[in-house]
């Protein structure tokens, strides 16, 4: 069931090319704005600023692209899902699909940053592991929050307000690992943070799995 739903998400997404293009363009604009505002052709930024800019860009593009996972859906469609699938299958398929989206977005963002702003990362394998882990963490928290926000009025603002405090712990961990990756410190120094990130992911996914049926029922 999960696989069927996942396949459905993918085909729907590939069919609506404008949505993918929109997300990609959003990411590109964010990167390009940071490039222009810092007038990077003439001067470069230090590593700490690079990491702050990078994570802000990723945060905003991921929040905006995952927000639509429940918010944009039509009322009739969710009634149809309700009758054919269990809520657990729905949330797991959404989390899987959103993780894929978040990881692709982060990698694309990394690529764009490399092209426009430069790539001060010294330990790339560590950094990419962080990107994957934080992508999964973002998607599991945001999928649930998107479900909550979709039931309320002014859901787009609510999405941001509800998600940022929850995401900060993931963000802080990622920034700490990014700092180690920027300095090229020995990997053993980042194991604690990686484990923490993994633990936060597990907590977020488990809670989303347990709590989603209660939102879905209404």
């Amino acid at each position: 069931m999960i696989l069927t739903l996942l396949k459905k998400e993918l085909t729907l997404e590939l069919r609506r090319k404008s949505v993918i293009a929109g997300i990609g363009l959003y990411l590109f604009s964010l990167v390009f704005i940071s490039y222009l505002t810092f007038s990077l052709r003439h001067n470069s930024i230090n590593a700490a600023t690079w990491s702050a800019l990078f994570w802000l860009t990723i945060l905003f593009s991921v929040v905006n692209s995952i927000a639509k996972s429940f918010i944009g859906e039509k009322k009739g469609l969710s009634i149809y899902y309700y009758s054919v699938a269990s809520p657990q299958a729905i949330i797991l398929s959404k989390i899987l699909y959103n993780s894929l989206l978040a990881v692709i977005l982060s990698l694309a963002g990394y690529l764009l940053f490399t092209v426009f702003i430069g790539n001060p990362i010294q330990d790339e394998a560590l950094f990419i592991t962080t990107l994957v882990l934080s992508g999964i963490g973002f998607s599991s928290s945001l999928s649930l929050i998107s479900g909550i926000a979709s039931k309320a009025n002014n859901s787009n603002i609510l999405m941001a307000v509800l998600s940022f405090p929850v995401l900060i712990s993931i963000l802080l961990m990622s920034i700490r690992i990014t700092k180690n990756a920027l300095d090229g410190i020995d990997r053993a120094a980042s194991y604690d943070e990686l484990l923490n990130l993994l633990a936060i992911n597990c907590i977020a996914t488990a809670l989303a799995y347990l709590l989603f049926p209660y939102i879905w029922r209404s």
Binding site: S141, L144, I145, I148, K151, A152, L162, P165, V166, S169, N196, A199, I200, I203, A204, L207, A208, L211, Y214, I215, R217, S218
Partner: peptide, 16 residues
């Protein structure tokens, strides 16, 4: 219901 779900989720995310 929604606020109860958010309460539990946010509290668990706040602990770290």
């Amino acid at each position: 219901r929604l606020s109860a779900v958010y309460n539990i989720f946010a509290f668990a995310a706040m602990i770290p």
